[in-house]
Design a binder for these strands. Structure first.
Lengths: 168, 168
DNA sequence: TCCAAACCCTTGGATGTCCTAGTATATTGC
DNA sequence: GCAATATACTAGGACATCCAAGGGTTTGGA
């Protein structure tokens, strides 16, 4: 990371937009750019917290998802849908988690096309420990005011619904 | 993209957190996860709008930054700082933009270590056209209510300042 | 003056994401 | 019942990001 800038680069961009004839979309542009940057900052914090476990956020998410599954196992396509990432991304994550001994692939009992992913005992332990660290070091110190957390959940929830993430 | 889920997976995760002893950080966890997902959705829209120009968001951002520079040129390290990405990411983007004839590298007049990046005439044209499309197709149809845009700018601006992005 | 420390950019490697195909298995419809 | 269509997973490729390391250029203190 570099030293802090003297001025907010996104606020500058918003000013540039306004001065160049795009005043009507300058605010949404700034909001969206801020989301991109915030995601980058948060991802870096998360990856830092997970590093000691040999996990990345992508792999952690899969591990956490499995740990909450009743049977401790999920079909790959189900995991892909719930995590909302491309199937090949799940394949990639499972490959690495399997190499690390945290999950195992097993054939689906009735559908020959489907592969089930299930947590190993070690995977369950790592998931639990990683969650504790993540909750303490990242989510517990997000820096968002409680009211703002509620606003974010509301605003982004509405956005995601409109974007077609869920029908709920 | 897949079909919409029947329920919001992030709301489900928040419930899981609450039921497993992490009620105190369930809300920030949900807010942060929502930011990650929203970024993913927005990035996909942006990349889609830029595809016809042969640009990715990373390359577009560099192009847009240069188009607002008074002299139309910036040192690589300055671009890295303003875009808040690793220097190697800028090297990568410049390599590709240079191959496409949209920017050119030139030596810094007084500092032999520094390389300046400047827009070519074609680069300036592409930047202008891409900006118009992005503004019309993405920023102009973000789906965020005007009030919410203001909330996002405020909340995320505060977060970024606390994270050390700028001192402003 | 001169060498060590600081700075700038690039190369190479590890990961993650998506897309396009390709292979295998299920389901559907005639 | 069998062919056409749909689904599930994986392989290969394009890109982006970061980190670690290397080579060249400046700067600054002894």
């Amino acid at each position: 990371m570099s030293a802090p800038l003297p001025r907010d680069p996104i606020a500058d961009a918003q000013r540039n937009w306004e001065e160049h004839g795009w005043a009507d979309v300058a605010a949404p542009m700034a909001a969206i750019t801020a989301i991109m940057r915030t995601q980058q900052i948060l991802l870096a914090r998360i990856e830092g917290a997970l590093k000691p476990f040999g996990l990345t956020f992508a792999r952690y998410e899969l591990l956490a998802l499995l740990s909450f599954a009743r049977s401790g196992a999920l079909p790959m396509n189900k995991a892909s849908a719930l995590l909302q990432v491309h199937p090949t991304s799940v394949t990639n994550a499972v490959d690495r988690l399997e190499s690390a001994g945290l999950v195992a692939r097993s054939p689906h009992p009735t559908d020959g096309r489907t592969t089930l992913i299930e947590l190993t005992a070690q995977g369950r332990t790592v998931a639990k420990n990683a969650t504790a660290v993540l909750n303490t070091e990242v989510f517990g110190q997000s820096g968002f005011a409680p009211d703002d957390v509620g606003q974010l959940i509301r605003i982004l929830g509405s956005f995601r619904r409109n974007a077609g993430d869920f029908t709920d």
